[in-house]
Amino acid sequence: MTAVTAAAPTDTTPAPVAGAPLALPSGVKPSPARVLPDRTRVLGTYLFMVADAMVLAAMIAAYFAVKDGSSAWPPVDVGVGTYIPFVITITVTMAAASAQWAINAMRQNDQRNVGIALLLTAFLGVATANVEWAAFDKAGFGVGDHAYGTFYYLLIGFHMVHLVVAVVLLLLLAGRSLAAHFTADHHDPLKSGVLFFQYTNGIWYAVFTVVFVFSRVHG
């Protein structure tokens, strides 16, 4: 980069008079490469969630396309109880509340409560995954028994995979917050992590509606 040599003196040249033809010293220094504008990570998380939600939407669209072509949905010999789905939904709701507690505590710079809330959220996440495992275990049908079974495992499994990722993220964030990495003004990683977790909870509500509510609606 020979040309860079020429740049050295111009950096100190005073800005030109207004109205004079623009010449570069009045130019602006680009912001240093390591600094990201606020909320860039959060925006990235949002866009990733949009893509991920399209995966879910496509699966749900496929669910309804297959359901509409079936004579009975779910097949007559299949009964899914109400107990397990409601236990999951309640646990998910509690986890959503405790994740929000972490964010509120962060806004007040209460590091201790952030840590506690994140660990509690992670625990509730693991509990949810555990009940989902029971839902697989006690379903009484497999992936290949009928199309409803395929979607049952696919959609609940989709939520479970997100849950596992979210729990790992929450534990990392708990560690970072206990190490005082975040402040009330700067906690984009925490925001992003909690955002992803809440999105995961949103996936559950969608899956619950589709797999358990609409399986009872016969068209």
Partner: peptide, 15 residues
Amino acid sequence: GGLVFTGFTGSRGGN
């Protein structure tokens, strides 16, 4: 053995 795109055997198959 998923049945999303295959089959179409009454209530058990896919589309």
